[in-house]
Nucleic acid binder design. Structure first.
Lengths: 335, 335
DNA sequence: CCCTGCTGAGAAACCGCTTTCTCGCTGAGA
DNA sequence: TCTCAGCGAGAAAGCGGTTTCTCAGCAGGG
């Protein structure tokens, strides 16, 4: 864009090489056979002039530009970072580039950002955990081809790749149950978060399935501070008999542990704590944090296969959910 | 791009409104006065047809698209995340959008990625801490307008915004010196990293300025693991009399502290430890980590003011370096 | 009442590239 | 030797907008 540097167009190259624009284009794309002498001349002209084709012109003509966009609410979230990595690698293998648009948690912006992004890219990977369902439905219809990440969308005409949070929570409860815990607290995430709702479903399932256990739900959030600030409530619950806490995610768990230490509560001696996501910091915490690991890169790769199918005009493939894997560490122990 | 949905072009709108394309364009851009009746008709047609102008066509014609790209080596680095935030906010205020291209630490890709990005955006914010200087010089010339972040580039025709790492290290050494420390270790970062070189310069300055102190340099890295793995060497240095360690960044410091705890080394009792960057996790560590805070959002905003000037055809403004601020916490104490 | 100047809408050129269409040329088959 | 298919290069038509140019229509001044 706005190239002071490159006033050089395909016409300049053609002129210098003494051939037509069409020939230059053919050489560039290598689709048809062209006289080796012309190829020579064109390539010489290109390097001499330092020519690079205009992306805008190119995408105007074929209506695509081999670029997809990933719209995320929060680039600081290690989950999205990992998915982005996996997605970028997979897409790159097919000659596609990935751009990122961070909506900074502004739900209102997500819609505009996604539409905007869709305008300059061939497809969208959408992470919008807080967008109301019906708005999301409408949006998804407008920006197809699109793959939705990490939230359910009943009956939607869109591929979904995500994490089975409910199952993960259940597995985590089972782990703790096996350690003898019966009274739990769940430190919940953002109220509107879809993945929090899934986790809560897991909590409910666990209570229903496992007779004799109780799970208190304490309001939390999604960041370090939220965990830190919830510690007093958690401690109060502990005094009432809770022996294990499941936090919305690792950051919350880490913040919680920090404050508990200040309060003199020993982990896991007085209280077992588990997180979710298995962020890199988890195993470096004091004590190392038990967490549920999700295959971030794998999710990204899977998103790409679905998106590629869609771009090629294929069908909407089935939803796939990854089951988190328990990473038992020292923050949880026998009661 | 590739719009199955939107086959609707400006011509369709014009036809439906019964006016010329030119009028539709005028209504869209509001540059000239047009008959209110036409405005009405056009707007009605637009909403009826769900028309949205093609970004590609638009950028083809005026050679710009009000979008800039930030090229980063590692989106997981909280520093870049913060800068991105600040940049996005500032640019948004002027109607610009920011896209992100992550080069995944592949130095070889940085060049291609930056060129690519420059093709679809009006300007570039370049973070390339490991790219050899002369290559960077050439690249910068090709992708102007561009602002370089967080690395010096002597004599370059490009605005630079960064952190005064050398000064930060000196201030940190002074802090520790004030606590009575005389023998230090610096756990260095990636060998080719420009900011590591700056830090090493700070180390050298400190040794030169402060008689009677020594600073051993231990090879490290930039991530949690690197700190963890360097712990044995650090511990050995401690046995030889080192009382304070300055890590390349907070992640390294956190990894180091984890391993030291396993080794039974008390922080700060046996050894004071400081990091750099003041990442969110720093104050939640055990013990809370002394660090040098850098104004990430502010840097991003400053980058934008410089880039905006450049885009508007203004001069290359002077380099600006932010001086990190000491956040003294409990990981450092009197010797 | 006629001429001039101005406003605003439509026609058309153009941004830089791809792709179809056309046509000259070559070589094979009759 | 002549015809015709086939190949490859150039001309030209878009892709979807913006912007210049042109010109009709109107108001104001002489």
């Amino acid at each position: 864009m706005s190239d002071r540097n490159r006033a050089v167009t395909i016409a300049d190259v053609a002129a210098r090489a003494g051939v037509s624009q069409a020939s230059v284009s053919r050489v560039l794309n290598g689709k048809q056979s062209v006289d080796p002498a012309i190829v020579q001349a064109v390539q010489a002209a290109i390097t001499a002039l330092g020519y690079t084709p205009s992306v805008a012109a190119r995408s105007l003509v074929h209506g695509r530009n081999d670029t997809i966009a990933m719209v995320v609410p929060d680039l600081e979230n290690p989950l999205f970072q990992g998915i982005l990595r996996g997605l970028s690698r997979a897409a790159a293998a097919d000659g596609y580039r990935v751009l990122v648009a961070d909506t900074a948690e502004q739900v209102d912006e997500e819609e505009a950002t996604a539409l905007e992004a869709r305008h300059r890219c061939d497809a969208i990977v959408l992470c919008a955990p807080r967008m109301p369902e019906e708005r999301l439905q409408r949006l998804v219809a407008r920006i197809a081809p699109v793959v939705v990440v990490n939230r359910p969308l009943p009956g939607a005409q869109v591929p979904i790749v995500g994490v089975d949070y409910a199952r993960g929570i259940r597995d985590l409860v089972d782990h703790l149950h096996g350690l003898g815990h019966r009274r739990f607290a769940f430190l919940s995430g953002p109220e509107l978060s879809a993945s929090n709702a899934e986790r809560l479903r897991g909590v409910a399932d666990a209570v229903a399935a496992e007779p004799g256990i109780t799970i208190d739900v304490i309001e939390g959030g999604s960041r370090l501070d939220d965990g830190y600030e919830a510690a007093e409530y958690v401690d109060a619950a502990r005094r009432e008999g809770v022996t294990a806490v499941i936090a919305f995610n690792d950051l919350v768990a880490l913040g919680l542990m920090t404050r508990l230490r200040e309060l003199g509560v020993e982990v896991p001696g007085d209280l077992s704590i588990a997180g979710f996501d298995d962020v890199p910091m988890a195993r470096f915490a004091t004590p190392p944090l038990t967490s549920m690991s999700v295959p971030r890169g794998e999710i990204g790769a899977q998103v790409w296969t679905r998106l590629r199918t869609l771009i090629a005009g294929g069908p909407i493939e089935h939803t796939v959910l990854y089951r988190p894997r328990l990473e038992a560490r020292e923050s949880t122990s026998r009661v």
